[in-house]
Amino acid sequence: MEDEQKNRRNFLKFGFLAAGLTAAGVALNKVASGDEGAEEKVKVLTADGRLAEVAKSKVESSESLSAASKHVRQGIPGRKFIMVIDLTRCKNARKCLEGCQKMHNFLPPVEWLKVKEMQDSELSGKYWFPQLCYQCDNPPCCKVCPVGATFKRSDGIVGIDNERCIGCKFCMAACPYSSRSFNYGNPKQVEYSKNHPLKSCHTMDPNMVGTVSKCDFCPDFGSKGILPACVRSCPNGVIFYGDENEDVVSNGEQVLRLKDLLVNNGGYRQFEVFGTKPRVYYLPPVNRLFPFKPDPVEHNQEE
């Protein structure tokens, strides 16, 4: 068990490092110059889930690692991540949550991102409502955590340290949006985790039994300027993501001014009355692109 964890950690280390290496454009220099095979290569996982071969000497000599782990609790300097979900465009394609599950290595029925039917009042229409962790600026979960395992970072992200979490589940009670999941040790998931031990997230380990996990805005993508998995998986461009400081959000295709978007489209946050100050805004489901159709399949019926 311990060895496994060590291995996992080492793999993660390589992961960070490889991220740095690819970014620098150093990786994969297996050029036809004749020194092929002269150096021992190791397989490493880059932060965005790619396997790459890197010269062993480069893995060991890297110094970017310690800095990376220090920043996990601090956040990416100068950033303030924000999300806008345009309810006019969602038609329950469920690609976002599939992308999320795939990216974070967890199996249904766990959904960090849920898409559910919503109807605000009797005579108003139904619509699809994607919901994830809102990374609140006044986070009730962080208030109640007894050990600081869930924490607020300067870039707005609410992270979880799965190595510290004691599994009391109080944060789940405190979250009025029920956006947190607990790893109960579902045997299928445990098996799957064994076969997919590599993580791409450096703030959260969704495969650790007995701890809490949730959407984390894919911060390691954020640090490299890549949009979160859900945003990239959505076929209808429902989810916009960006940096509030830059005043621009993007769904991968469109790039819009954040303030204009929210001001002109009546952006709102769920349960403003709670004062939790979410970092996820919604655009009301008016003039929808797709008529509401009930989902013929009931998802996640299993326990």
Binding site: V147, G148, A149, I166, G210
Partner: peptide
């Protein structure tokens, strides 16, 4: 608790 062996974190953190 999901992780009873980490109860010591209460005192550490």
């Amino acid at each position: 608790m999901g992780r009873p062996e980490r109860i010591v974190n209460m005192f550490l953190h």
